[in-house]
């Protein structure tokens, strides 16, 4: 009887130790689901979703605190990918969070800029170069088009310029030909 209890107890201790060791050794840092959601989000860091960045929004989605249709830059396709990942229903983009726009980058009119550095402080990806009382300029390659620099500018010298299509970025169009309605000629 006692030996049986001892064997069971020993087994429990050994397995418990193994599990405890594994829990420490193979500990998963962070939440893999959040990482997966974050990978789908466009990293504009614009805050249109109501969260202070893409990562916080991803965390909120993972916790079930936010809907998947609050990201205008991600657009319809982003919503579809999130729905696939999370097994949720595809929804229309929530109108209160904004509308899907073509990608644009900020442009500073250097004639008007007074060098106040407010836009530099607002830029979430440090894509604006300048210093106090010096002219500022946007590094267009790194601008995510979040528009966060627009409201702080005291002289309204920043505008959003849609990215022009170039030979490098041009895409073959979807090859569907318009179907002409069969119109009968009036005699």
């Amino acid at each position: 009887m006692i030996s049986a209890i001892l064997v069971m107890a020993l087994g429990a201790i050994v397995l418990g130790a193994a599990l405890g060791y594994a829990a420490v050794k193979f500990r998963v840092e962070g939440d893999p689901l959040v990482e997966k959601i974050d990978a789908i989000l466009p990293q504009t860091q614009c805050g249109q979703c109501g969260f202070p960045g893409c990562k916080p929004y991803a965390e909120a989605i993972a916790k079930g605190e936010a809907e998947i249709n609050q990201c205008p830059p991600g657009g319809e396709e982003g919503i579809r990918k999130l729905a696939d990942l999370l097994g949720r229903e595809v929804k229309e983009l929530s109108a209160e969070h904004g509308i899907e726009k073509p990608k644009a980058v900020a442009f500073i009119d250097e004639q008007i800029c007074i060098g106040c550095t407010l836009c530099i402080q607002a830029c979430p990806v440090d894509a604006i170069i300048g210093a106090a009382k010096q002219m500022h300029t946007i590094v267009a390659d790194q601008c995510t088009g979040c528009e966060l620099c627009l409201p702080p500018c005291p002289v309204n010298c920043i505008s959003m310029e849609p990215l022009p299509e170039s030979v490098e970025t041009w895409k073959w169009k979807y090859p569907v030909f318009a179907i002409k309605p069969a119109t009968k000629e009036v005699a």
């Binding site: 466009p42 990293q43 504009t44 860091q45 979430p124 990806v125 440090d126 790194q142 995510t144």
Partner: peptide, 13 residues
């Protein structure tokens, strides 16, 4: 690629 770069820059900021 652009999104990954933006994420790195945002985290660095």
């Amino acid at each position: 690629e652009a999104a990954d770069e933006a994420r790195v820059r945002y985290e660095f900021r």
